[in-house]
């Protein structure tokens, strides 16, 4: 019988204790979504990579994973774009600036920036999928010399659900950014495109070999976005996707986020598409 070596007690770490951090700003983005700015004790840096997540806890309510919405280039604080869905986010919504929440992390596998350097970057974000994608977008914007062209494709249910509207306007106005947005159903005031996000992909002008793409959105979106990207001719090796699953621990123990053999909290949430295309439970 093979024995498996156990880590020594000196390597063992207290994995579940959060650091208490202050909510320094709350900005209402839509009826359901807020953007929370969080400051760690002594203004410490979170030290995350774009695409990573943290576990946020409120004592007496619980803990849940949230994508980090700000780029690491944004110093001294970090941002979380959070939809009010479920108990924790309801209670968070009622909290005020100055109150503290528990933070653990950053966790998971974010974007491997080195792989993206020198490339054109295409972001395909559906709905709240823009939250983690924004950390990449702003990283690319803040390091213009490291990257080629930036394409942003964003789809939302309605124009009232659009997130980060001020930034969207800036991205749209920026001649260096190829920005496209669509909504499934527009209000009377909506002057932009109407239709599902995949309708935007055929019209993109991409340098197919040079472009790396990152996709994030609701579970239903991935399959259709992939189809559109592949028929556009984007090589599979250039596609990355950020996935969401239930998580409790964030450190590869509790088992909830497992997709076939992979743990989203360890190997994801950002996956290289060729690594997960054969996983039946992934997409």
């Amino acid at each position: 019988m093979n024995q498996f070596q156990m880590a020594s007690p000196t390597e063992a770490r207290d994995l579940y204790s959060p650091v208490m951090a202050v909510i320094s700003k709350v900005e209402k983005m839509t009826e359901l979504e807020n953007l929370y700015t969080v400051v760690l004790p002594d203004g410490a840096e979170l030290g995350h990579k774009p695409g990573q997540f943290i576990e946020l806890s409120i004592f007496g309510v619980g803990e849940a994973p949230f994508s980090i919405s700000s780029s690491p280039t944004h110093r001294g604080e970090f941002e979380l774009g959070i939809r009010r869905v479920g108990m924790l986010t309801e209670v968070l919504n009622r909290m005020e600036v100055g109150q503290k929440v528990g933070i653990r992390g950053p966790f998971g596998n974010g974007i491997d920036i080195e792989q993206f350097k020198g490339r054109d970057v295409l972001i395909v974000a559906g709905g709240i999928g823009l939250v983690p994608m924004r950390s990449i977008i702003n990283y690319v914007i803040d390091n213009p010399d490291d990257f080629g062209k930036l394409h942003i494709v964003y789809g939302s249910r309605t124009d009232e659900d659009l997130l980060f509207t001020e930034e969207l306007a800036r991205w749209e106005a920026d001649p260096k950014i190829d920005y496209h947005v669509t909504v499934d159903r527009g209000s009377l005031d909506w002057k932009g495109k109407t239709g599902v996000i995949t309708t935007l992909i055929p019209g993109l002008e991409l340098d197919l070999e040079k472009t790396v793409c990152c996709v994030c959105g609701p579970p239903i979106m991935y399959r259709f976005a992939l189809l559109a990207l592949k028929s556009k001719g984007l090589p599979e090796r250039n596609i990355f996707m950020s996935l969401e699953r239930r998580m409790k621990c964030g450190v590869g123990k509790c088992g909830h986020c497992q997709i076939n053999s992979t743990y989203v909290c360890q190997d994801g949430p950002v996956y290289h598409y060729p690594d997960i295309k054969s996983l039946q439970e992934a997409l």
Partner: peptide
């Protein structure tokens, strides 16, 4: 021992 010691060893 393997599972709980791997990656992030659990105290």
């Amino acid at each position: 021992d393997y599972n709980l010691g791997k990656g992030h060893p659990e105290k």
